[in-house]
Amino acid sequence: MTTTETVHVDLGARSYDVRIGQGLIDHAGAEIVALAGKRRAAILTDETVAALHLPRLQAALAAQGIEAQALALPAGEATKSWDRLGQAVEWLIAQKIERKDLVIALGGGVIGDLAGFAAAILRRGVRFVQIPTTLLSQVDSSVGGKTGINSPQGKNLIGAFHQPALVLADIDVLGTLQPRDFRAGYGEVAKYGLLGDERFFEWLETAGPTLAHDPQALQRAVRHSVAMKAGIVQRDETEQGERALLNLGHTFGHALESATGYSARLLHGEGVAIGCTLAFELSARMGLCSQEAPSRVAAHFAAMQMPSRIADIPGDLPDDEALIALMGQDKKVQDGKLRFILARGIGQSFVTDAVALDDLRAVLAASRA
C-alpha cells in the first residue's frame, strides 16, 4: 500500500489539493465532507465508469451523510458536445444543485472537461470535485481548471477556466483500464519529461514499461506529472505564456484527432505521442535540436507499444494540406499564425510561430511514409 501524497495547487482563493494514492474512492466521503456544504452533491459520470466505480463512491459519500444522485452519460469523446452539456446542466438544475453544493466528476478527461464546464456555467459557477479514473485525466486534464467541449470545427474550442475544489487521483482504479487506454494516458506522462525535465524522461525510459504493474512507480509518475503541471499553472493560470508548453504535441495531435472524427481510431494520448514525435522531428529539421532527439522519442514510444508516426493510424486520412488547415483551428493560433511547441532538446521546449510551411509539409510527408 502506497502512502497518499498531496500536491498543492497555489492559486490564492482558488487553491486546492490534488490527493494521489491507493483506495481514495473508498475514502472519498471523508475527503469531500468538509466541502459539501448542505451535504448534497451530484455526480456526473459515464456508463462504463459507473458500472465499475459508482456504487463505491456513493457508499463512501453516504457514510459521511452526503446525498449524491448520479447521471451516467455515454462513454467516448463524442460526449463532449453541446447536446450532452445541455443534458448535464438541465439535470443538475432538476437536482436543485445550488452554488454551495458540489458537482463531482467521476471519469476520464471527457467527463472531467464536461462536468467542469457544466459547473462553471451553472448558476454562474458551482464548486466541483475531480475524481479522475484514467491515467490521462489523473496527470493532465483533472488539474489546472481547463474545462470545455468540442466543436465540429475543432477540439476544446468552447469552454472556460474553472478550477476544481479538490482532485482525488486513486491509482487503484487505473488497474481497471484496458491496456490501450493505459498506454494512451502514458502519452501525457512522457510529455512532461519531453517538455521540461530530461531526468524524468530518462527515468521513464527505464520505468515506463513497468508502470502498469508497479503501484509505487505509477504513483511516482502521477505525482511528478501533477507537480510539474501545478507549477506551470501557478505561474500562468490562463495560458498567457508558459502554460502553452503543456500543449507539446497537441497542435499535431488535435488535428489528427479531428481528422479521425474523434473516434477509437486514434485516442487522445496516442495523438499526443505522434504529435510529440512530430514536434521533435520538426525541431530537428529546423536545426533546433540534434537528429538523435526525435529518434529517442520515437524509440521510447515504440518500447511502450504506442504509435509515433502518422502511418501508425489505421484507415485513410486527409492530405497534408487538409491537416494543416485543421491545425489552423488550434486554440494556440494567434493573429492567424500557427504556433508550435518545439524543442532545443529533450526537456527544453519553447513556443514559436516561426515555422516554414515547407518544413511542416516535409515532416508530415515523412511521417506518412
Rank of each mutant, 00 (worst) to 15 (best):
M1G: 12
T2D: 00
T3A: 12
T3M: 07
E5W: 04
E5V: 15
V7L: 13
H8P: 13
V9Y: 09
R19A: 15
I20V: 13
Q22V: 00
H27K: 13
R39N: 09
A42L: 07
T45G: 02
T48E: 06
A51W: 00
L52H: 13
L52W: 12
R56Q: 13
A63M: 10
Q64R: 08
I66E: 03
E67V: 13
A70F: 11
A72G: 09
L73Q: 13
P74R: 14
E77G: 08
T79P: 01
Q87P: 04
E90C: 10
A94K: 10
Q95S: 04
I97H: 07
G108N: 10
G108C: 11
G116T: 00
F117L: 14
A120K: 02
A120L: 04
L122M: 05
R124V: 11
V129M: 05
I131A: 03
P132E: 04
T134W: 03
T134S: 15
L135E: 03
L135D: 03
L136T: 07
V139E: 00
V139G: 02
D140A: 10
G144P: 03
G145W: 01
K146L: 00
T147D: 12
N150C: 08
S151N: 15
S151L: 15
K155E: 04
K155G: 04
L157F: 11
L157E: 11
I158N: 05
A160S: 15
Q163P: 15
P164H: 08
A165I: 05
L166F: 02
D170H: 07
G175M: 00
T176F: 06
P179C: 14
F182H: 05
R183M: 04
A184S: 15
A184I: 01
E188A: 14
V189E: 05
Y192S: 04
G193V: 12
G196N: 03
F200C: 03
F201L: 10
E202M: 09
P209W: 13
P209L: 14
T210H: 14
A212C: 12
A212I: 14
A212D: 14
L218D: 01
L218F: 05
R223F: 05
A227M: 12
K229R: 11
E239F: 14
R243Y: 03
A244R: 14
L245H: 07
L246I: 00
L248I: 02
G249F: 11
A255V: 12
A259G: 12
G261P: 03
E270T: 00
G271L: 07
F280R: 00
F280W: 01
S295T: 11
R296H: 02
R296Y: 02
V297F: 13
A298I: 01
A299N: 10
F301T: 03
F301S: 03
Q305I: 13
P314S: 06
G315Q: 15
I324N: 14
D330I: 04
K332W: 10
K332C: 09
V333K: 12
Q334C: 04
K337L: 14
A343T: 15
A343W: 09
R344D: 00
R344N: 06
I346S: 02
F350A: 05
D358K: 11
D359A: 07
R361A: 10
L364Q: 05
A365C: 01
A366D: 15
S367C: 06
A369G: 09
